[in-house]
């Protein structure tokens, strides 16, 4: 028996068989309940919408993990803070025309949440690491921070849901388009546009700027990076700032499509983690793709079975399966690896 599961071709065969069974099951259920291609298209659209935000959160996980080795479970809280701060600022009674007020609220929110990320790193992660804390300790610290932030959020904002207006009409109910009989909210377009802009900006930073290259160097080979005069502590700070900013942006655009609440960070944090795990924790584009796949999978799964209440279950089943069978991820390899000893 030994080596049976280790055999590559057997493993691959099992994976393909499992996929075929899964697809067959989905199609069978759809056939039974008379769901056509249109239903699938709708689920996909809805899935890509939520999945984009999982992807952004996953991106935050990857950015921090690849440079520091820390899995930052507070990533979802940045999303929550983004949505909540934006809602709070927008609700303030100031003599500004609403569109301008929203823009100011967004800018202020991103700045504040980024600062939260910076303070978090400097006040907890950085001193702990300076004293030689084990990586597991640092991860536990992020969980502690999560609990703290959520408690403070409850104190500040209470348990009632807040409102971020839809960007297009600044109303609570968004503009809806009906292309080919499908339902598409205008905010979805804002979400996709934002994700595209964030990705382009990060791409420019990592590929075209010296600091971005230093950041990657630090992820590839921290020791050699240090010998180049790249300060790993500064790169760690930068990674938390970036991750917080990306999380906040995600929270703001998605907050406008939902009803943000003090505890929304939990679900986003965990799903973003699943997205990042799909990309082996080190591939930024893979994390975004992972988020999209996850979003579509849970919507199709919930739609086909009709069990909307169990939607989150799908994400966690995927998480467990990946951690069990392919802990290195399913989308692309990362930069880390070769010269790590």
């Amino acid at each position: 028996m030994q080596g049976f599961l280790g055999n590559r071709s057997v493993k691959r065969g099992l994976t393909v068989a499992a996929m075929v069974v899964l697809v067959a099951l989905v199609l069978f259920l759809a056939y039974q309940k008379n769901f056509g291609p249109k239903a699938f298209a709708q689920w996909t659209i809805d899935g890509i919408r939520g999945g984009s935000i999982y992807g952004l959160v996953g991106l935050g996980f990857v950015v921090i993990f690849s440079v520091t080795g820390v899995i930052n479970f507070a990533q979802g809280e940045f999303v929550m803070l983004g949505a909540m701060f934006c809602a709070t600022f927008y609700a303030l009674d100031v003599p500004l025309p609403p569109p301008l007020k929203l823009v100011v609220a967004i800018i202020l929110t991103v700045i504040i949440v980024t600062l939260v990320g910076v303070i978090f790193e400097r006040a907890t992660i950085s001193p702990a690491r300076a004293r030689g804390a084990h990586i597991v300790t640092l991860i536990i610290i992020t969980i502690g921070f999560t609990i703290t932030v959520r408690a403070i959020a409850l104190l500040l904002w209470g348990s009632r849901a807040k409102i971020v207006p839809a960007f297009t009409n600044l109303q609570q109910t968004d503009v809806i388009f009906r292309p080919l009989g499908l339902t598409l909210s205008a905010q979805s377009l804002w979400i996709w546009g934002t994700v595209a802009v964030v990705l382009a900006a990060l791409y420019y930073f990592f590929e075209r700027t010296m600091m971005g290259k230093a950041f990657r160097a630090c992820a590839i080979n921290p020791r050699a990076a240090e010998l180049m005069g790249i300060n790993p502590s500064r790169m760690s700070l930068l990674s938390f700032a970036l991750a917080a900013a990306v999380g906040a942006v995600g929270g703001i655009v998605f907050g406008a499509a939902t009803r943000p609440q003090y505890d929304m960070g939990l679900v986003f944090g965990l799903k973003g983690f699943v997205a990042a795990i799909m990309a082996g924790m080190v591939n930024p584009l893979g994390a975004v793709l992972g988020g999209l796949i996850l979003g579509v999978a849970e919507n199709v799964g919930a739609g086909v079975t009709g069990l909307y209440g169990y939607r989150d279950l799908i994400a966690f089943v995927i998480l467990i399966l990946i951690l069990l069978f392919r802990p290195q991820g399913i989308i692309g390899g990362g930069e880390r690896g070769v010269e790590q000893t």
Partner: peptide
Amino acid sequence: PERRQVFSTLDVLDNLLLGAY
């Protein structure tokens, strides 16, 4: 450094530029 430790997934030019970081 020992065993060279080049940045394996950055190109030669970037490796050199990072030397002058």
